[in-house]
């Protein structure tokens, strides 16, 4: 019905692309969560020295298309960097980490990760902020009245509730990050979308190539969803363990 399947060689291409998509998305989500949390702290800080730069960051990264941002980091910024540094960044090399060796990522990967991470962090920051906003201000006052120090109020009263509220939207942002990673093909990163297009060009089996890519995306998004469900149903979460 759908014609022949793809030869193993092409499935291998798709698989390589998929692995790269997963690594890129995972790294992005991890780092962006940290940065997003820090941004959120800055954004809700009463001091303007902190909150205004955070506001500017959010406005800049949330109000411009990700594709333009990726082009900016990959094509725009490298045009300004000294030639020797670009050469160094582009040189293939291995990092020797005592026990094992990993290949230094390509410049496309670095630029793609950097662009996607900064973009995602802006959205994650806003999810955290919405979570904090859901905890009524009176609770902080009550905490202080009970003799908590301000830091303890945040640690034991505000954040546990904020994180619980933010969990759903946060997972949504992780899914977005995974899907947005496909845009890095525009700067030549050989992730899943790039691989599917390449397979299509080589084999002319359009349906199979893009069909496979779609399935892999759907499967990984579903996995995030399942993880979310597991967390929400866990005893630890229901008993307010965050």
């Amino acid at each position: 019905m759908f014609g022949e399947l793809l030869a193993p060689r092409f499935l291998h291409w798709l698989f390589d692309g998929f692995v790269l998509t997963l690594i890129l998305s995972l790294l992005t989500c991890l780092v962006a969560t940290g940065l997003g949390f820090a941004l959120c702290l800055a954004r809700i800080s009463p001091s303007r020295i902190w909150s205004w730069p955070a506001r500017a960051y959010l406005a800049l990264f949330r109000n411009t298309p990700l594709l333009v941002q990726l082009f900016f980091w990959y094509f725009g910024v490298t045009a300004l960097l000294p030639e020797a540094l670009v050469m160094w960044l582009n040189q293939p090399r291995s990092l020797n980490l005592v026990l094992f060796e990993i290949e230094w990522p390509s410049f496309e990967f670095l630029a793609g990760f950097w662009g996607l991470m900064l973009y995602t962090a802006a959205f994650i920051c806003e999810e955290f902020r919405a979570g904090v906003g859901s905890v009524r201000v009176e609770q902080r006052a009550a905490g202080l009245a009970l003799g908590f120090k301000p830091a303890q109020v945040w640690r034991y009263i505000v954040f546990p509730q904020a994180l619980r509220t933010a969990l759903g939207p946060l997972l949504g942002q992780y899914m977005n990050a995974l899907k947005n990673s496909s845009l890095t093909m525009a700067i030549g990163l050989a992730e899943l979308s790039y691989a599917s297009r390449q397979v299509e060009t080589e084999t002319f089996k359009t349906f199979q190539a893009f069909g496979f890519a779609t399935l892999l995306y759907v499967a990984s998004i579903a996995l995030i969803e399942v993880i979310g469900q597991l967390i929400a149903r866990s005893k630890w979460y229901r008993q307010g363990g965050v």
Binding site: Y74, F75, A79, V86, S106, E108, G188, Q198
Partner: peptide
């Protein structure tokens, strides 16, 4: 060769100018 594919020739040329390829 490490092949990096771009959307069109002007993009590829920009990458060459920048030293990415």
């Amino acid at each position: 060769a490490k092949v990096v594919a771009y959307d069109d020739t002007p993009f590829a040329f920009t990458a060459l100018r920048n030293g990415n390829v």
